[in-house]
Design a protein around this nucleic acid. Structure first.
Lengths: 339, 339
DNA sequence: TTGTAAGCGTTATCAG
DNA sequence: CTGATAACGCTTACAA
């Protein structure tokens, strides 16, 4: 009694006195089965504990019901909601998430091969290290891809994005209105496309307001890197009056460093803005002014677009861009240079 | 040129002038193939862009190479590292993560059926709503389960846990040494087993130090719920001198609320401890005293145990428990009751 | 509406 | 070492 063989549609068929295909039809939507046999099959299936084997189904239908989600550890740790929301939306559409972690570009080819062998229906890519060549490979394999917050130059794949340019422009405008002149930009890791885009947007926005040659510091998106970058700068330079950070944790790091080690009050002496709208920005000790990504809308759209591409692969790629919403915290004040 | 049919082992066999089974053997480890045919097959496979079809392999080998990870949104958002670490470890062992989200118990049965149809090799469960009955179902289906931070009474499934009792005892001891007498316990959501266990441990530890009938507040593990719970308490009651919180974000909420709205200094007037050791506890504005879970060790063990159960299903279930490490921040000070 | 039979693309078995 | 051939458990024409 311990060698429990899996019960198949044949077993059910035999027990119910019908053909195997009848059993199969009962478990498929929109197939013509008489009420009588349906009930007969359903009850015996229940007795035997039969559940259709998804693997066998995948093999014949050539649809796996799985979507590969490629992300980096950093992406998941900074935006855990994204994965949860994607998963939930996909589950509603009867697709499961098969997870792939891509932290350094070395493993990329290996991951692509894996994805290919698993016959996934589509791919959603959030990873930083993801070049255009790889995107082309998916095209070659006829497997639809949706990029999340990743701009493509050639526009061969669909993507959903937050409008970095508009969001950062809003933040810079806010600072500019307060008559700030001494700016600092704290950028993210140079390997990240998103980080580079945010940096460019910051430079462009500042430039549009007449602030050229703003010094640029680099961090890795972490709190500590924000602290450290600001510390390094302050050791050798005069304090800025405004810091434009490429994400929220770094901005919070800058705030803590400024307050703790350099006697700067925020926002009286120093204004700081972030980006993303993570939950901690609302914490009372910070109340960071930032721009929030509409994650629910973006994830929903990513799934919708992907499913559309799965159903009708010949539809052209599309790009959808959302404006972020400004969160006015308490970290922006009038310029007040320390002399 | 656009109807790209997938290339199969037959195509490669024909092109290379060998049998289909020869091709198959080349792509399997430890199969005897002559050097000559191996090379021949490998090069033509490369030319044609052949990759074995994992689905077909699953069907015949009855191993899917996939592990179901069941988690709640809250779990992923509070402990995003756990999923990343699990995924990385599993990938090293050639297992992929198939994700299942379980937020309310209503969908449980549905998810279990899905998991069953996907023929996953094993399950790692981090979800809060996961009763013993469900665990039994996996046993019935012969599919190994490892529970993550979830105690089982019957001990029919393996599990890895942080030692809540020991960790909380350390924290309470720290407070007791500072002569605190007026305690408050801030517990997590009552639906969560982990939350309930932490609450029990707190009561037990306080009781062991002679502090009986400590008032208990409830939150949902979020920053806001910590703020709010403390606010409610303070409206009608005298300030405690020490708050034992069931996780870090709630503790940080308590700190902010105490400082902002009740003029309490931390740690001079109020001591606060948390649990988990999330990254924000190190932020300078808080520097929370807490206990950190050894996530790397725990996730590694979860995977190791699961794989062992997959290889040798008759091995008995095992429980592994780790002590958390005390992080002494700056939120515990001598008792100093405000009169 | 039902049953028969032909796949889907592998791996496993067993002669040669 | 190699090549037939039989599974694996399902879906899907096709014929009845």
């Amino acid at each position: 009694m311990d060698k429990k063989k899996r019960v198949t549609s044949y077993d059910v068929a035999k027990a119910a006195g019908v053909s195997q295909s009848a059993v199969s039809r009962v478990f498929l939507k929109g197939r013509s089965v008489s009420k009588k046999t349906r009930e007969k099959v359903l009850t015996t299936a229940n007795e035997l504990g039969y559940k259709p084997n998804a693997i066998a189904r995948m093999l014949i239908t050539k649809r796996s019901g799985m979507v590969a989600v490629i992300l980096s550890s950093r992406a998941n740790i900074n935006y855990p909601e994204v994965l949860s929301l994607l998963n939930k939306r996909l589950a509603e559409c009867n697709e499961r998430v098969l997870l792939f972690n891509l932290d350094d570009s070395e493993g990329l080819d290996e991951i692509l091969e894996q994805i290919w062998t698993f016959q996934v229906d589509g791919v959603i890519a959030l990873a930083a290290h993801f070049d255009n060549e790889s995107i082309e490979k998916f095209k070659d394999h006829n497997i639809p891809v949706v990029l999340y917050n990743r701009v493509v130059l050639g526009q061969t794949a669909s993507s959903v994005c937050v409008n970095h340019e508009q969001g950062i422009f809003q933040l810079v405008t806010l600072l500019d209105k307060q008559a700030h002149k001494d700016y600092l930009v704290l950028a993210g890791p140079t390997e990240s496309d998103v980080a580079n885009e945010r940096l460019e947007c910051a430079i462009k926005a500042l430039s549009a307001k007449g602030h050229k040659d703003v010094p640029i510091l680099y961090g890795d998106y972490s709190y500590d890197s924000g602290k450290q970058a600001f510390h390094q700068w302050m050791k050798d330079n005069k304090a800025p009056t405004a810091v434009v950070c490429s994400n929220d944790p770094m901005a919070i790091g800058v705030i803590d460093e400024a307050r703790r080690n350099w006697g700067l009050r925020v926002p009286e002496d120093l204004s700081v803005v972030g980006f993303d709208g993570v939950s901690a920005v609302a914490w009372h000790s910070y109340q960071l002014t930032t721009v929030k990504q509409p994650l629910e809308l973006m994830t929903k759209a990513a799934v919708d677009i992907l499913l559309e591409q799965i159903e009708t692969p010949d539809n052209p790629a599309q790009l959808r861009v959302w404006s972020g919403s400004l969160i006015e915290g308490n970290t922006v004040g009038p310029a007040n240079p320390k002399t």
